[in-house]
Write a protein that binds this DNA or RNA. Structure first.
Lengths: 166, 166
DNA sequence: GTAGGACCTCAACTAAGGTTGAGGTCAAGG
DNA sequence: CCTTGACCTCAACCTTAGTTGAGGTCCTAC
């Protein structure tokens, strides 16, 4: 293993960060290009990450599991105090940020489950009440691109379930 | 409104299907190209959808809300009996198909919420126990491409939380 | 002093789920 | 007849989240 001292406490190379975080080097480069993590460079132009990058990457992955897109994760990370290394308190705050997001997602899916159960009963697949009161309530899941309730868009859904057609 | 009779019971043009389903014509074309719906053509080469296409589209949108990718939705739709128009019973069966998928997603998010709560307490962001016992348990959410538990891949995650670094 | 692995950059590609636009057709109303 | 709106095809583009590969550098060990 060349250029790797394995000592206790110093900056991490991209390979080390990759191995310890379980995230591919290409993904780490990608995160860095997009401002989610940062590094200093050695004289030979190689990246060196401070050790708290590990926690940053962990936070990114956890956030992605919650379903947050990278742009929002970046915004959250940008709210960390600059200059000093973030404390556990800081990370706590950020984690708390996603709590409500997570709750909303769970609630949306449970809502959908209730509706689906109704549909399983009658086979109508109308979901009418739900759609009318709650258009596009999945909060950014399901597809890509700038969705998230474009105002003035088509979203009326008056079809299905009037005049049964099977 | 040219070429549209507005009568009670006949095939739907793409515009009608779009309006009644709340799905853009371009998306309907896309679904058709990908075998999720089908149509006959008029003498003038215009699409005419049978009325049960409405239910198909509704099923597609609901499935997407559950988080099922179009390929799997297509597979499910392909399991519908060919030749006859699907009955409510058929749709019931398909809806039931996603029940367990939905349950799994909800369970995964609730699991994550428990872990996150622990992290909020200590700020460690390790999620160690969770990761070790349950690697990649989001079931196809979070990112794109053929993920879903590639065997033999990097997924050990031994980093973070040994030697606390803040 | 040279082999090798780890690293660098940059461009191109992947995948899902569509959207947008150009250029052309169809059909009804004035 | 000719305009107008809905429709057609096909190719190109978009976003997110990365991966892959080519071509070149760094550095450590033999």
């Amino acid at each position: 293993m060349p250029q790797l001292v394995g000592g206790a406490h110093h900056a991490l190379s991209v390979g080390e960060l990759s191995e310890r975080s379980g995230v591919a080097p290409s993904a780490l480069h990608f995160y860095e290009r997009n401002g989610l993590i940062s590094s200093e460079r050695t004289s030979g132009n190689q990246r060196r990450y401070r050790r708290d990058a590990l926690r940053r990457v962990a936070f990114i992955r956890v956030s992605q599991r919650v379903g947050i897109p990278l742009k929002e994760i970046r915004a959250a990370l940008d709210s960390l105090p600059e200059g000093r290394t973030p404390t556990k308190r800081d990370w706590s705050r950020l984690s708390r940020l996603w709590r409500s997001e997570l709750d909303a997602r769970i609630a949306a899916l449970e809502h959908l489950r209730r509706d689906l159960d109704g549909c399983i009963g009658c086979g109508c697949l109308s979901l009418k009440a739900c759609r009318l009161q709650n258009p596009e309530d999945t909060l950014g899941d399901g597809g890509t691109g700038p969705r998230r309730w474009e105002p003035g868009s088509r979203d009326t859904y008056t079809g299905v379930s009037e005049s049964p057609d099977s």
